[in-house]
Computed example of a mutant assay.
Amino acid sequence: MSLLKRVLPHPWLSLSMLIGWQLLMNSVSAGSLIMGAVLACLIPWLTNVFWPNPPLSCRVDRLLLFVWRVLVDILLANLQVAKLILGPRRELRPAFVEYPISLEHEFSISVLASTISLTPGTVSADISADRKTLLIHGLDVKDEQQLIEHIRRRYEQPIKEVFECSRP
């Protein structure tokens, strides 16, 4: 293992942590840059043992498009949930849906489950022992198959494209 990889085991995480730190500090000074750099190096290094099988690489262009898609979906889902909850008719159809996962890499599966939970109105509740089925709770499920296809098209397929080089 190279020295750089030992010091910065997750360079993209370190970079995003440094940027996040600077945004939290709301200023750029020598002290905040140094502290941000120390944290951005130290935290991924200390948590490296919890990343037993990290993705080998990802397509950053696809990742940015995926993040944009998720942010837009979160905004739209917030509006839909608010309409459902505050609307005059409260005819919700909550349901648990078993979602068949075609992803193979554990990190990709975690990204999918996290994305589903981030989107208001849906929560990842459980994953099967064989990592082939994800149990999802939906606040208002009209059609289970439609929800499955929506998740496959909007999230799972783009995650495959982002981490296409990270096959187990």
Rank of each mutant, 00 (worst) to 15 (best):
V81I: 04
G87H: 03
A77C: 09
D126C: 11
E91I: 14
E106R: 13
I116D: 01
V111G: 00
I101D: 03
L76W: 12
Q80G: 03
L84H: 08
P88W: 12
L76S: 09
V81F: 00
I85P: 01
F107D: 08
V72D: 09
Y99W: 09
D73W: 07
E98M: 12
L84Q: 13
T119H: 02
S110R: 10
L103C: 05
L84Y: 12
V81T: 03
S128Q: 09
R93L: 13
V111T: 02
E104Y: 06
L84G: 01
A77G: 03
D73H: 05
Q80V: 14
L79F: 11
A125H: 09
P100M: 07
A95N: 10
E91W: 13
F107H: 11
V81R: 00
L76I: 15
D126L: 11
T122L: 02
A125W: 10
D130C: 06
G121T: 06
I109R: 11
S128W: 14
S117C: 03
L86Y: 04
S124E: 01
I127L: 13
L86G: 12
T122P: 01
A95C: 11
S124I: 03
I101K: 00
V81W: 01
E91A: 13
I85H: 04
K83W: 14
L118I: 09
I101A: 05
R89V: 15
V70I: 12
T122W: 02
